[in-house]
Design a protein around this nucleic acid. Structure first.
Length: 273
DNA sequence: CTAAAATCCTGGTGGC
DNA sequence: TGCCACCAGGATTTTA
């Protein structure tokens, strides 16, 4: 049950713009206080009321709503968070812990079975997303940028790819997929990568994320849903993730699952060195 | 610096 | 059938 990563969050942002740009928040119900990271719930409710949604963006795995009084509403879906837009009189969702009312009578509903997701309302978005690493798909994120970042690190490669301060937006699915495409073992130390390996990894990260984006994300166990409730398509194109004991699509060897940095990790012991 | 462990949560799973 | 211990997992915090 993987969480939304860069391609999933980007797909959700794209789906939210149509129904939400130009709308104004008229209130918000908070059914589980811990989901509001800051400010305190009463201030959160009072301060968001009357603010219009001017824009919606993604940064890493965060959604950022630019609001009319200068605030940013920032949402992280973590593992099981979903966002839907529904008529206000539609049936309540079982896990709709945070429900935003809009001036057209609809609601933006933040559903989250495991309650790991978080919502922030801040004047300065930097206090939430300011320490994130570069966007891997940005035009100005070059091979030499990536190479420089990799060379100054000594740690195990896979946890490094999951470190949002190192590079933003990669999670467990696409870390495994990118390492497979690059032919690199997840437990390699960053400092041992040769120039050609760094290049392969850079290209693999961008290729894997781009394809997942084109597929509108990966839906596993129904955990990630598009705004319209539909599933993504990339689960059909996964090469190693969640394919333990199945044949490697490249060499036919048996895909293994190990734990790296506390995370379930899938790889081909033949193709990845 | 790296890294391991604990924390937050609950649906799903496997054992008996 | 039912009970229950246990697990996954992102990011943060704490501890080594």
């Amino acid at each position: 049950m993987p969480m939304p990563e860069l391609p999933e969050v980007e797909t959700i942002v794209n789906g939210l713009r149509g129904p939400l740009i130009g709308r104004t928040f008229t209130g918000v119900r908070v059914g589980w206080e811990n989901i509001v990271a800051r400010p305190a719930v009463p201030e959160f409710q009072q301060r968001i009321r009357g603010q219009q949604i001017l824009g919606i963006r993604r940064r890493g795995k965060y959604l950022i709503f630019d609001l009319s009084r200068g605030d940013s509403l920032i949402i992280h879906l973590k593992m099981t968070g979903q966002l839907t837009v529904r008529p206000g009189d539609a049936q309540a969702d079982k896990y709709g812990h945070t429900v935003f009312d809009l001036d057209d009578g609809c609601q933006l509903r933040f559903l989250d079975t495991r309650k790991f997701g978080r919502v922030y309302l801040v004047a300065d978005e930097g206090e939430v997303v300011g320490s994130l690493g570069p966007e891997p798909l940005a035009d100005n994120f070059t091979l030499s940028d990536f190479s420089a970042l990799i060379r100054e690190r000594a740690g195990t490669l896979k946890p490094l790819l999951l470190n949002q301060k190192f590079i933003a937006g990669i999670g467990n699915i696409y870390a495994d997929e990118a390492l497979f495409v690059a032919g690199i073992h997840p437990q390699r130390k960053a400092g041992t990568l040769m120039g050609n390996e760094i290049k392969r990894l850079y290209q693999a990260i961008r290729q894997v994320l781009c394809q997942a984006l084109a597929d509108e994300g990966t839906t596993f166990d129904g955990a990630y849903r598009k705004v319209d409730g539909g599933e993504g398509g990339h689960q059909e194109n996964l090469l190693v993730f969640q394919r333990k004991e199945q044949p490697c699509p490249r060499c036919g060897s048996t895909i293994e699952r190990i734990v790296v940095g506390g995370r379930g990790t899938y790889f081909c012991p033949c193709c990845q060195k």
